[in-house]
């Protein structure tokens, strides 16, 4: 178990290192020059541009040697300094992001956990039942193939515009101030439902199919046949099949996190939901590079933390990892 843990932590540390390096490298080594861009938009004469260029190059410390810039970047990172947002000048990027994170957690955690729980149970239930299987599988495949933003757009149009049941933009009604009143909480939940539901549906399809296949596979395994031969009730056999089938689904959750986060980004864009995704869109449209880089780091850190949490859960759930019987699953 120790080996398993050290390995995992090493991988996460290297991943973080690589991610920060990418974050630092891309603005510096991509074609094009952000300062030049900024100046050409400012539209000043050539001499003034030259002076301003030197000024900005100094202000952003681009005149230092490259290794010094890299070390400074790490230093700033550990002080929590991600630069100043241009789009929301003069708010620091870290502060802008911190304001958006609660909305992301509020949207993502319920959507991920509920869809995983519901999908797994439903998939296990549908396995080997002819009628359910024939209806669930096609729906599951279609759902998991649906682009997140399109399902969001579709639901917003159908339930928001045509049937006019749910609001389709923002995190709460524009005429309310954040407070602890029932009216405000009601409004928050009402605005939360559609983005949550569209994320939930797409993920649900994937988990249901995965679990259905796992349970069928486990029911074909020797131990299941042995239990059946012993005359164990079908419910018990299925219970064991479920318990074994759930393990790959936990690993699957870790592998799917990147896709889920990408889905959440576009869903927030569709519903103008003020999380990181919505912020990112604004940052891209306003060419706010510090904010884009900050979003990138936040997404990576979030995914790394979630991955680590899933690893711990896996160890708790699967006794074999604790006894070091599966060293190579890392």
């Amino acid at each position: 178990m120790n080996r398993y843990f050290t390995r995992k932590i090493l991988i996460y540390a290297l991943t973080f290192f690589l991610a920060v390096t990418i974050d630092w490298m891309i603005p510096r080594f991509m074609p094009g020059d952000p300062i030049q861009n900024m100046l050409s938009r400012a539209n000043v004469n050539a001499d003034a541009a030259q002076v301003m260029y030197t000024y900005y190059a100094h202000a952003f410390q681009l005149d230092l040697p490259i290794w010094q810039q890299y070390l400074n970047f790490w230093g700033a990172l550990f002080r929590g300094d991600l630069g100043i947002s241009i789009y929301l000048f003069p708010t620091p990027v870290a502060k802008v992001l911190m304001r958006a994170v609660p909305y992301d957690l509020f949207l993502l955690l319920p959507a991920i956990l509920l869809s995983w729980w519901a999908g797994n149970n439903f998939g296990a239930f549908a396995a080997r039942s002819k009628w359910l299987d024939n209806t669930v599988s096609p729906i599951g495949y279609i759902l998991s193939a649906t682009p997140y933003m399109w399902l969001g757009i579709f639901l917003a149009w159908l339930l928001g515009i045509v049937l006019n049941i749910f609001p389709i933009a923002g995190a709460y009604s524009f005429d309310l101030q954040p407070s602890f009143s029932w009216k405000f909480i009601g409004s928050v939940l009402q605005h939360w439902f559609l983005p949550f539901f569209s994320l939930f549906l797409v993920m649900f399809g994937g988990w249901a199919i995965g679990m259905r296949n796992m349970v069928i596979y486990e029911l074909e395994a020797d131990y299941s046949h042995y239990l059946e031969a012993l005359g164990a009730p079908q419910r018990l056999v299925r219970k064991y099949a479920f318990q074994n089938g759930i393990l790959p689904q936990i690993t699957g959750l870790a592998l799917q996190l990147g896709v889920i986060v990408a889905g959440a980004l576009v869903t927030e864009v569709v519903f103008s939901y003020p999380g990181i995704g919505y912020l990112l869109l604004a940052a891209i449209q306003n060419q706010d590079y510090f904010l884009i880089q900050g979003c990138f780091l936040f997404i990576i850190i979030g995914v790394l933390i979630a991955n680590f949490a899933i690893d711990i859960i896996y160890i708790l759930v699967d006794p074999r990892t604790r006894r070091g019987m599966t060293g190579e699953t890392a």
Partner: peptide
């Protein structure tokens, strides 16, 4: 090791930051 590292990084985040800097 390389595969596992790149597996953890969310693909979309990397694509976003690369694309954002390409004019």
């Amino acid at each position: 090791m390389l595969t596992n590292i790149i597996l953890v990084i969310p693909t979309m985040a990397v694509l976003l930051i690369i694309a954002a800097y390409l004019e």
